[in-house]
Design a protein around this nucleic acid. Structure first.
Length: 290
DNA sequence: AGCAGCGTCCGGCCGC
DNA sequence: TGCGGCCGGACGCTG
């Protein structure tokens, strides 16, 4: 499941492969055509498949950047600028290849749902096993207001102050701290894996009410989240479940995870516990985290 | 008005 | 081996 570090890895590998290339044709898989025909918002959001295909044809990719867990593909066509927003959901992956057969893992190849064919004959394949990902074509970011509500990038100068200010708001004060740090409007890009790790390293119980953590501890917690995200980026992200970097390679951060998915606390060997917070499984050590 | 909770997009995988 | 249930980012709707 790609979180910020995994998306960062994808962008770093993808950008040099696709910037400057022009889309000649777009193909959409039969299952997505059918889902969309049934009125579902499967992967392609806001447009019909025919609108999406027609719009993308002729567009040149001018830049590729990460924003939170989103990939922003800046596009240009006939002097007009567009933004193709990609979210990988649980199982999305991009493969720049010469032909589909180069997507070697069968479970990705057989779930290739959107294929861009470039004018140079190469392909950019979007595969998504569980179809939780999204592709949304916009004229600009403001056309989809939820994108404007995202917290600053965690590495940005103002991110700590933004986080601290959020934690004082009434809507967050009573919430479990884990729900708050995983909220994209409070911290960008911190999902279940890295929230679990940061809380463990800080000895903070995931269900602790946000207002019951001192400002000093909140600062330390934010810094810990940033450190964990940064360390994961340096290690190429975590390879868990269906996440792969685009070349089929894999990150190594999963080997450094101390609490996510663990049955026993690495510090005190107590059996870990888990509870549901904001709808997600939250693992913690009942001995170490208070 | 604001928010909690649930539905939506799904198939891999686990346990019985 | 077959099959029902669980899991989950983030938005949108409902009560």
């Amino acid at each position: 499941m790609p979180e910020l570090p995994e998306v960062e890895g994808v962008v770093r590998e993808l950008a040099p492969e696709i910037i400057g290339r022009t889309i000649q044709a777009v193909a959409v898989s039969d299952v997505i055509e059918q889902s969309k025909a049934d009125g579902k918002e499967a992967i392609i959001k806001g447009l019909s498949t025919s609108e999406f295909k027609a719009a993308l044809e002729g567009m040149t990719i001018t830049n590729v950047v990460r924003r939170s867990k989103y990939i922003y593909l800046y596009m240009s066509k006939e002097e007009r600028q567009y933004l193709l927003v990609s979210h990988l959901g649980m199982t999305g992956a991009w493969f720049p290849v010469n032909q589909l057969e180069e997507v070697t893992e069968e479970k990705f190849r057989k779930h290739s749902h959107v294929i861009f064919e470039f004018t140079d004959g190469g392909l950019l394949v979007y595969s998504d096993i569980r179809r939780f990902g999204e592709l949304r074509l916009l004229r600009e970011e403001a056309e989809h207001p939820p994108l404007l509500k995202m917290a600053p990038e965690p590495f940005a100068e103002d991110a700590l102050a933004y986080f601290l200010a959020c934690t004082k708001e009434s809507k967050y004060k009573k919430k479990p701290i884990k729900a708050v740090i995983m909220d994209g409007q409070v911290i960008s890009g911190c999902g279940n894996i890295y929230a679990t790790e940061a809380l463990f390293k800080m000895n903070i119980h995931p269900n602790r009410a946000t207002e019951r953590i001192s400002v000093e501890r909140k600062k330390q917690l934010f810094t810990m989240v940033v450190d964990v995200l940064q360390e994961s980026i340096e290690r190429g992200g975590s390879t868990i479940s269906d996440y792969r970097t685009i070349n089929g390679g894999a990150g190594t951060m999963q080997n450094l995870l101390q609490m996510y998915g663990k049955k026993q606390c690495p510090a005190c060997e107590t059996e870990t516990k888990s509870l549901q917070i904001a709808g997600r499984t939250s693992v913690y050590c009942p001995q170490c985290q208070k």
